[in-house]
Design a protein around this nucleic acid. Structure first.
Lengths: 209, 209
DNA sequence: GGAAAATGCGAGTGATCGCTCGTATTTTTG
DNA sequence: CAAAAATACGAGCGATCACTCGCATTTTCC
């Protein structure tokens, strides 16, 4: 309500901004361990080292915390996407292109393990899960643009489906990479690139990697 | 504890078996709509058209319901796997093999929408999520056997990784197929086969499909 | 310095949920 | 037909959880 508004407009001190960051860190940790639904707000407060009351000085409710965390992740990830989908990558050879796209996104997810935990959790409120839609849309648009450069004759619906399937394969193998131990990771990343490249290759008129 | 034992050993009447089936159907419906954690046992009872007390005549607790539902699904799915991984399929041409394996599993998941909802829910208790491990292991073993027939020279670790990645791709695109509308489905199933076939082809020494 | 604003606390409130219990009804058994 | 077993009920208990409230402390602003 307007309580939430008042909270947004409230003038934060440096201490407050710090607390907000602490709370989001704590929430990421808790969500990652037991999921959104099973995480109590008191647990988040305890993990952040503050009292339950203080938590509500900065967030209107539990959903609000998840929403803010998702927003923070998306802001960070968009920077990584900037590197990954720079204009010139579309013209690179397929395997180079995959290196450029895949590596930064894998690095981001390794650096922020809570990201997948939150955004992939089906128990999360709809307002949060919808936060990743623009992200998904951006990836699809970028891949669509890549098709535009590398396979302009491809029909639009096949393009779109190809992009969605490629993203789906990528997301699935990314989860496997994150779940694997550090020793297994490089080989799995290679398989990820082989799989996505092998799927895109024929669509794009280029041999498998 | 032994309360649970007593319940297992209790002699069920026909009426009781029917109630159990009703309860599992209701649970599948509820879990599918809001997930395991957010489903209340009273809601399951109400959906099944019985009282909360009656529910506990047949199940020791909420986890027990999920476990029984998972067991039921796995029993059903194993029949589908029987068709999918019959011995002779390993020798079929790659695209025929994929038809034989993919189609019945897609059909099963379409017929039982609660299956993915339950087994993919991260909020589910560990005893339930571990129920799908044997399922996963069986799939890996079968695919490993296929490698044994079609690419016997492949190193064991590459074999294993190839099988896991193939299953990962399959599972991800299967979820996309289930999420898509009926109109999109056939094309997506075709892409699923193209993706898995395209990944397996080089490993198995066969051209893409 | 002093008022106002921001931050901090933690016991407490109301609601929800998993599950129990006493009891009533139906079915099986001998 | 009884006695026993299985099924059925639903109010309510104890625990948990999201969130509040009254009040104390710290920081900012003039």
């Amino acid at each position: 309500m307007n309580r939430e508004r008042r909270q947004d407009n409230r003038k934060r001190q440096a201490r407050g901004e710090l607390r907000i960051a602490q709370i989001l860190d704590a929430a990421a940790e808790c969500f990652g361990e037991v999921g959104f639904a099973s995480t109590s707000t008191n647990a988040i407060a305890a993990t952040a080292g503050i009292s339950p009351g203080s938590l509500y000085q900065f967030f209107a409710n539990k959903d609000d915390i998840a929403r803010a965390l998702a927003k923070r992740y998306i802001r960070l990830l968009e920077a990584a996407h900037g590197e990954a989908f720079a204009d010139e990558v579309a013209k690179l050879p397929l395997s180079d292109m995959l290196d450029r796209i895949v590596d930064p996104i894998v690095a981001f997810n390794l650096a922020h393990p809570g990201f997948q935990a939150l955004l992939a959790d089906p128990g999360v409120p709809s307002q949060v899960s919808e936060a990743k839609k623009p992200l998904h849309a951006v990836m699809l648009t970028r891949i669509d643009a890549i098709f535009g450069v590398r396979a302009p004759e491809l029909a639009p619906d096949k393009r779109r489906r190809g992009a969605e399937v490629a993203v789906g394969i990528f997301a699935a193998l990314l989860r496997m990479v994150l779940a694997a131990g550090p020793a297994e990771r490089p080989a799995l990343v290679a398989e990820l690139k082989r799989a996505v490249g092998g799927y895109l290759g024929p669509l794009v008129g280029e041999g498998a990697v």
